[in-house]
């Protein structure tokens, strides 16, 4: 018995003396019924503290928001069902995304081609990037396609889509949750969260399709795209080349990503003329082999 006691003392004492850092697992502590009732009352009276105003979204929340935006875009534009083209665009997109400031978003980057000749590209929050056949056809080479995709990856990396969510939307939840108005949406706080989600999807969708990002966001995305191209081994001048082609004006991407003369000059200033690398021809040839 005494031996057992010594053994147990050693078991207890040694880790403490040795300074073992045993990970502390937080206990899930279900609130007592009275505490839970109080919490519910607070939430009902004050809106909800759980949904914080203007808080940053977690990576997972951003992902679900991006899926909803993509689902809305895909209800408007059909997917281009060409496995060879889809794989190729994913390979080019992943090549540049690996060199971005955010190489590993939750569930990774995914690229898809939309079956429309309207030139456009959409960076859904979380890493879903949709580019139209029309825009790819404007690109004359793999390097130019890489420039377009790098620019869109930069918007994801900078969370520009999320920044378009109206700050007022978060306050709206604060004021409506728990009120009669929230109940009319179909369910207290849950209804308000769903309503917030719907509103956030609309805000991001509007930015992607109608209003476009701020000039500052476009400039930052251009800068990072040039850096990504350079680090991957693509021609950094490819972004200026493709922007130059877009300067004719029109709808789609011309409206949401306006390639003004000032912007073009700024992008050109970021890059130095460099002779074509030995593999640039190989890249252009494989681009031309894919049917868009």
């Amino acid at each position: 018995m005494r031996r057992l006691a010594h053994f147990l003392i050693l078991m207890v004492g040694l880790p403490l003396v040795a300074g073992f850092n045993i990970p502390s697992l937080p206990l899930p502590t279900p609130p007592l019924p009275s505490q839970a009732q109080k919490a519910a009352e607070v939430v009902t009276k004050t809106g909800t503290k759980a949904v914080q105003a203007a808080r940053p979204l977690s990576e997972a929340e951003e992902y679900y928001l991006g899926r909803a935006v993509a689902a809305r875009l895909l209800a408007r534009y059909p997917l281009y069902r060409n496995p060879e083209a889809t794989l190729y665009v994913n390979q080019v997109g992943l090549a540049v995304a690996r060199k971005s400031s955010r190489p590993n978003p939750f569930r990774g980057y995914h690229f898809a081609v939309l079956d429309t000749l309207e030139p456009n590209a959409f960076a859904c929050p979380g890493g879903l990037i949709l580019v139209t056949r029309g825009l790819i056809r404007m690109c004359g080479s793999e390097d130019e396609l890489a420039a377009v995709l790098a620019h869109e990856v930069a918007h994801v990396a900078h969370k520009d889509g999320l920044n378009s969510i109206s700050q007022a939307r978060w306050s709206e939840v604060l004021t409506t949750a728990g009120t009669e108005a929230a109940r009319q949406y179909g369910g207290g706080v849950a209804g308000a969260v769903l309503n917030l989600f719907k509103g956030a999807v609309e805000d991001v969708f509007r930015t992607l399709v109608v209003t476009g990002y701020s000039r500052q966001a476009e400039e930052a995305a251009d800068r990072e795209a040039v850096s990504m191209l350079s680090r991957t081994g693509y021609q950094p001048g490819a972004l200026a080349a493709v922007l130059g082609k877009m300067s004719g004006g029109g709808g789609g991407i011309f409206r949401t990503h306006p390639p003004t003369g000032e912007r073009l000059a700024r992008v050109r200033a970021l890059t130095r003329e460099s002779p074509p690398g030995p593999k640039e021809k190989v890249r252009t040839e494989r681009f031309q082999r894919v049917k868009f």
């Binding site: 839970a36 919490a39 519910a40 939430v43 009902t44 909800t48 759980a50 949904v51 979204l57 977690s58 997972a60 929340e61 679900y64 928001l65 949750a177 728990g178 369910g187 207290g188 706080v189 849950a190 308000a192 969260v193 989600f197 956030a200």
Partner: peptide
């Protein structure tokens, strides 16, 4: 009325 599940859901955000 606001239920405990709703409070839990609101705390989790977009899920």
């Amino acid at each position: 009325q606001t239920t405990h599940d709703e409070v839990a859901l609101a705390g989790k955000g977009f899920t």
